[in-house]
Design a protein around this nucleic acid. Structure first.
Lengths: 187, 187, 187, 187
DNA sequence: AATGAATGAGGGTTCATTCAT
DNA sequence: AATGAATGAACCCTCATTCAT
């Protein structure tokens, strides 16, 4: 049932956008009455947050799996693999992605987004730490991770949302270059 | 009068945030009645959009001026100067910046943001075109601009909004490195 | 307009009782839309409170006038006159009186009732002070006033609400006796 | 089981007040499910009424016992004893007393209160009848009882609820005087 | 041009009651 | 008997927009 509400929430978010996702619409989409929503969630925001958290978790999980299997591989390989995993994970209905971003932007509720970036950041930090020798020696790791994670995330989202006239292959290639050139030592 | 409404809109956005900026609050701040708003703007969103457009214009103008005076200078110099100009231009009241971002996220209204990026992009494109020899030879310029502009913009905004524990100097330094390493030829 | 809402509030209270007096019913009774209520009152309770305050004020005014014109008359005369003034003032539609009592009972909102009793009490206190020699010498005035006011008020309300099989003349006579015998010196 | 619900009802009334005493809270307090409430009571109000009736019964019983043991004693003695018994009986948690009064005020449900007053009234009537010679000769007994009972009850409740700055001793003394002076013959 | 009162659909939420299990 | 999830009408309140003045 929680599941059903979450699905309905996602549908509604996708169809009506962040602002248009009213409790009554969510209830209708779930095939239940408005009151029933409150049997499972304390208030509307909890529903929306849960929807996004579920998605965020799946994404983290996906990226984690991808990286975990390659901790011993060289930086270029893992960066590219990670980028692709993230790209694929974000390549859902654009309308839903847009709603998620709108939510992530919200003051109080940015938590889900922040948490997502935090988790991905930790992962990246761990990996880079073990590969420090392959990196630019003077790099401040914390800062580099902060920048990299947000850059990759944002560019991917924007690419999927705005659909600029850039071939997907080229986009991924350039994004990879962007990250690698930032991390690697001046040859 | 339009001016007065725009000022009021900005004030209200800053003080009450995106959601809290109701028409009646804007009207009050402008010292007029709610009805009068509609003499100058077709609907609320047009007001908010105009407020942000004005800000966006100022920002473009600022960056343009900065770059224009240095078209003959080497890439690292101009990149750094541009970054700083943008940083300073975005370093307004965080509450306003946040409201602007919230609005920029909106489906229909992303236009202002898009237009901003478009204009900055053209500028950067023009500059890079004239400095093509100093760049990585295989770089696809359109794409590189698309990536660079959005990266710089977003990271700066996030830095100002989230205030991560990164010294400003370091942030600007790393951001510069990120961009330069992406553009320059492998040495 | 405030007037119209207040009248509508009173009507609604009378017709539907305290619990049944919803904002939409009040708005309907006033011939306006629900939203308009909030142009004149900050929230529902303010409307109900104002309705009752208006009634309470009228009542205080009536009793005050009655007493004021007789400050120089002997205790029995003024007591009886006051009782009758109060009786007549409370003799409105029983349904409205009932709603008023329900409201007076409410925790937060008892203020109107308390204020009413306070004001009547002050009046009575002033009068009795000037007639102290005609009273039971050992009487604690504050306490006596507290008791008398609440007794008279409550018995009158109950009489009007419950309509016991007691002739009105007898009720007023006995109530007068009750108060006078309490105040006067043991003959 | 009915007992358990009644206890739960009282607890809930005390803790959450009249308005806050929802069926689900009562059910929770009783350790059963909301649905089970309806196995024992036709609707919510029946529960609340029963809670108050139980309390009312206890009160009547207490007063009855007190009076019964003194039918042969003089009026002042029994009046004072009765007043004190009532006072003590009403001196429960104020929150519960308040809830009881709120309920007693209700249109349909005033029955419990009325019944309480009726029963106490009968008792008082019986007593006064046997002591008629000690009373004011012209007193209409029915009416006198009606007035006395409601006066004593209401003043005591108000005293306990509003906690005016009157010492308890003085309150009881004055209340006794009020009643006795009303009943006794002009000396 | 300017007003600002009026609108009214829509928002999120509560809760007494029902009924399939 | 007992459950407790489901109901759904009703609640109070907000606010972008309109329009008579």
């Amino acid at each position: 049932m929680v599941e059903r509400i979450l699905d309905a929430g996602r549908e509604t978010l996708t169809e009506y956008g962040y602002e248009g996702a009213s409790t009554s619409r969510i209830a209708t989409a779930a095939g239940i009455s408005p009151g029933s929503l409150y049997q499972y969630f304390p208030h509307k925001d909890a529903i929306v947050s849960a929807v996004l958290e579920r998605y965020s978790d799946a994404l983290v999980s996906r990226v984690t799996t991808e990286m975990a299997g390659r901790f011993d591989q060289p930086v270029p390989v893992i960066v590219r693999a990670t980028l692709i995993a993230l790209f694929d994970g974000l390549d859902v209905e654009p309308a839903f992605l847009r709603a998620a971003v709108e939510h992530g932007t919200r003051l109080d509720d940015g938590r889900t987004l922040t948490a997502f970036e935090q988790r991905i950041g930790e992962l990246v930090f761990a990996y880079l730490t073990t590969h420090r020798p392959a990196l630019r020696p003077d790099i401040p790791l914390d800062t580099a991770v902060w920048l990299s994670v947000r850059t990759v995330e944002h560019l991917t989202v924007r690419y999927l949302l705005d659909q600029p006239p850039i071939p997907q292959e080229q986009f991924l290639g350039e994004l990879t270059t962007l990250v690698l050139n930032y991390l690697k030592p001046a040859s």
